[in-house]
Design a protein around this nucleic acid. Structure first.
Length: 827
RNA sequence: GCCGCGGUGGUGGAACUGGUAGACGCACUGGACUCAAAAUCCAGCGCCCGCAAGGGCAUGAGAGUUCGAGUCUCUCCCGCGGCACCA
């Protein structure tokens, strides 16, 4: 009699798997490939958190099952190790970030290995390893050479605490995503990546992949494509024009004023004609001072000021209309100017009401009946009192366009006034510079001499005069050791203080040059790590085309919803770019994307160090074992939903594994296997398999429990049925199943077993409980045989005492039989 | 405000295309074993009436479609996630 001692068996089998290289992905295998991926962790000093094992275990179960299905599975792991927490730790303690990172990776490795996840450790990558970031730099240089990286003085989001520029994506609700501190606008020279050039491709690509719907819509919203028209408005008494973008050119006749964003260049150009220039300048200055946070907080009431003396001409009806400056119009979107149609736009409506500007309705709702007066007129009259009519319909008050449908009118009016169709995106270019130490150095130098002779790289619209790329033979450009890791007070990276490193020779002309001292953002290394896993030790290329062709695309990528906008979009962009230059074989990197929910502390709060409610997986592994932890995390609740950690429920899963264990003592070779056991066995094969594939792990575990409970109650347990249970359970609780498998006399690993097949003929029940509903209420139930004909059944049912009592001799008005389920009678 | 998801026992959650609501756990109650406890095992467990047989009520609220609704339709309430002056 053996006891379930997880401490002994878990270490033993982890060692066995490693020694026998059972989870190595084989480049030369004839089996079909399957590439499963989880988001590689940031190895923080705090160590693993129970949230980490959720996606790892889920994809582990899928990977293990797929290996048993005959696939050659690549399930890799690595470290996304550049980043602020490590740098901040280095600032505090004076330890070099590289050293801290090494220690953290060792700890994470130990912790993850103790969970028995079937990663291929031989392919582990580390974004801070020069052998890795050499290729991150190489990809950046390709982007640079193709005109997709450019330096630009732009107003960036500046986090005052972190002393760092942030991408739009990193500013959440007006504050810094990392530290929650205030963000202000600052003009800075920044490297930018022209992701906007890929807006359409990134949108189109979503059509060919299988992403969880929220991920797809979030990406679509972020890219924010809208179709409309650009139309020019003349300025009275000047040859200048105001160009606007509108999605509703059909409402042009209703444009009763115009609004410029405070940043709009025209305000400066029209200085002479503005009668209230002082007032206007004061307004613009105050608008600029507002941070994003204030701008959103103050959205209750719109403000603005009229440019007195400036009038624009509505090209539809040649009417003179006033021009305003207001910060509800954004400088960064569209043309930075709008035609205001208060009758059909709620924002314009609000503004017009406040400043008493005229409102003219030019579209009416489509009629749904033919009352007199028509219903749509009543609707519109009603609406006029409270708000704009932002819906669509039929044109009115629009001259020769009256009674046209809005869609037709849009393009006819645009054409009539000399406008043109235009696609606009919300997506902005990606701010790629960080003024920080712990990131990849940007492999460019600035050469004064080359700048003067215009010998800089210049591709497409972007010119980067004087910026010279390092030759690829000089990569990696390593991070030099510095004494202090703090950003400087001027906001420059700590690298800028290292004159030895900064001052260098121009690779082009050999003259004096200075290195770029900004580093790359965190997102750089994670934008292509899935490619490096494929060929992680290649020194000549980031990955060979042969290996990429074998493994790409990633078949199944699971990650958190918090990464669906940033990481997913950036890495798709890099992969699409690499595809366009012929460096990777597929355009879309991820075929399928799923998402897991968070694990919350008891009480529904997020786990956090400051609240002291973090559960450390080490403790659970120690007390109950990795198998219990894995099965419990899967059993807690639906995989894609947030669930609360509940130590009480953990014991239920542990008991289940213990019962599976003790059942092994009663396994018998000669026990006959009753039909109902065989049926349940095959039902389990079917259900557990289907549920794993659909990520319904909680019900998969429930079915395993049901099957196990059945076997547990038998005095003699048929060997075949028990072995099936072990095989089905093994992806969830691999260590215990290996040990039990070996105890049954097997000499090879259970992970090498074939996933069993079910026989549909054996799934059928011979009898079922028929439910009899009379007038919609359940009145009787009894067991009938599955093969019964409707006629025979009807005769039987009508003779049932309870049925007779209600029918009272009368014929039923309706008799309906749902085979295998119920009979519904209407008396 | 807009978009998406959700609301089921004491509790976490099950329920395929409309067909026995509450699978599988946890907690709880009673019993067995024990000197005792823990562990384990057996039984019970939505609410109300009833000794029972049985009956009635129940999936956030209200209506509707249907022989039949947790599931479909409409209105409303609440919670979570995302976006938020994007013209």
């Amino acid at each position: 009699m053996s006891i379930y001692d997880h401490k002994k068996i878990e270490k033993k089998w982890q060692k066995y798997w490693e020694e026998h290289e059972l989870f190595r992905a084989r480049d030369d295998s004839p089996k079909p490939k399957l590439y499963t991926l989880i988001e590689f962790p940031y190895p923080s000093g705090e160590g693993l958190h129970v949230g980490h094992p959720r996606p790892y275990t889920a994809m582990d179960i899928i990977s293990r099952k797929k290996r048993m299905d005959g696939y050659n599975v690549l399930y890799p792991i690595g470290w996304d190790a550049f980043g602020l927490p490590t740098e901040n730790y280095a600032i505090k303690t004076g330890q070099p970030p590289a050293q801290v990172t090494k220690k953290n990776i060792a700890n994470f490795t130990r912790q993850i290995k103790s969970l028995g996840i079937s990663f291929d450790w031989s392919r582990a990558v580390n974004t801070t390893d020069p052998a890795y970031y050499k290729w991150t730099q190489w990809i950046f240089l390709q982007l640079f050479k193709h005109g997709l990286a450019y330096k630009s003085k732009i107003a960036i989001n500046w986090c005052i605490n972190c002393k760092i520029g942030l991408a739009n994506e990193e500013v959440v609700g007006g504050v810094c995503e990392r530290c929650g501190g205030p963000v202000e606008k600052r003009l800075k020279d920044q490297w930018m990546l022209a992701i906007t050039k890929y807006a359409d491709k990134l949108l189109e690509g979503l059509q060919e992949v299988d992403y969880v719907p929220q991920a797809r819509t979030q990406q679509e919203n972020w890219i924010g494509r809208s179709e409309g028209a650009e139309i020019d408005f003349k300025i009275q008494g000047s040859d200048r024009k105001i160009r606007v973008f509108t999605t509703r050119p059909d409402t042009l006749f209703g444009a009763t004023y115009m609004v410029l964003a405070p940043e709009h260049e025209l305000v400066g150009q029209l200085k002479e004609s503005i009668l209230n220039l002082k007032e206007v300048e004061k307004y613009i200055a105050s608008a600029k001072r507002k941070s994003d946070l204030e701008r959103t907080e103050l959205q209750k009431e719109k403000t603005g000021v009229e440019l007195c003396g400036v009038r624009a001409v509505n090209p539809a009806n040649n009417e003179e209309i006033p021009v305003w400056v207001a910060d509800y119009v954004l400088g960064g979107y569209g043309t930075g100017a709008i035609m205001a149609v208060p009758a059909h736009d709620e924002r314009d409506w609000e503004f017009a009401k406040k400043y008493n500007l005229p409102v003219r309705y030019v579209v009416r709702p489509v009629s749904v009946d033919s009352t007199n007066p028509p219903r749509e007129e009543k609707q519109l009259d009603h609406l006029k009192k409270f708000s704009a009519f932002a819906g669509v319909g039929i044109l009115m008050n629009s001259g020769s366009f009256n009674d046209l449908d809005f869609e037709t009118a849009k393009w006819k009016i645009t054409e009539e006034v000399g406008g043109h169709k235009k696609i606009m995106y919300k997506l902005r270019d990606w701010v790629f510079s960080r003024q920080r130490y712990w990131g990849e150095p940007i492999p460019l130098v600035f050469c004064e001499a080359c700048a003067k002779s215009h010998k800089g790289e210049s591709v497409g619209e972007q010119t980067n005069h004087g910026w010279i790329p390092l030759p690829e033979s000089e990569l990696p450009l390593k991070l030099p050791a510095v004494k202090k890791y703090e950003p400087t007070d001027t906001g420059e990276s700590p690298l800028s203080t290292m004159s030895k490193w900064v001052n260098t020779k121009c690779p082009r002309c050999g003259g004096a040059a200075r290195r770029e001292t900004d580093t790359m953002p965190n997102w750089a290394g994670s934008s292509w790590y899935f490619l490096r896993y494929i060929d992680p030790h290649n020194e000549k290329e980031f990955a060979s085309m042969e290996a990429l062709k074998k493994w790409m695309p990633v078949d199944w990528y699971n990650g958190g919803m918090e990464h669906t906008v940033l990481h997913l979009l950036y890495s798709r962009f890099w992969n699409q770019f690499l595809f366009d230059i012929g460096a990777v074989p597929v355009r879309e990197p991820y075929k399928k994307r799923t998402s897991h929910g968070m694990i919350l502390a008891k009480g529904g709060e997020k786990m956090s160090k400051s609240k002291g409610n973090v559960v450390n997986p080490d403790d659970i592994v120690k007390q109950y074992g990795a198998d219990t932890l894995r099965a419990y995390i899967m059993f807690m609740g639906p995989f894609d939903q947030a669930v609360e950690w509940d130590p009480q429920s953990l014991v239920g899963v542990h008991r289940f594994l213990e019962r599976v264990w003790t059942t092994s003592e009663r396994v018998s070779n000669d026990a006959s296997c009753p039909k109902n056991i065989i049926r349940q066995e095959h039902q389990s094969i079917k259900k557990v398999g289907e549920e794993i594939e659909a990520m319904r792990f909680n019900t998969a575990v429930a079915h395993l429990m049901t099957f196990s409970n059945t076997l547990y109650k038998l005095e003699k347990v048929p060997r075949a049925a028990y072995e099936t249970l072990l095989v089905l359970l093994s992806p969830f609780a691999p260590h215990a199943c290996e040990e039990l498998w070996a105890l049954l006399g097997h000499t090879s690993s259970i992970t090498e077993e074939k996933w069993p097949e079910f026989d549909s003929a054996l799934l059928e029940e011979e009898t079922f409980e028929l439910v009899i509903q009379i007038n919609g209420k359940i009145r009787d139930k009894y067991i009938v045989s599955s093969g019964i004909t409707e006629e025979a059944l009807r005769a039987e049912v009508l003779k049932r005492l309870k049925v007779e009592a209600i029918l009272n001799g009368a014929e039923p008005r309706q008799f309906r039989y749902i085979p295998g389920k119920l009979v519904s009678i209407v008396a």
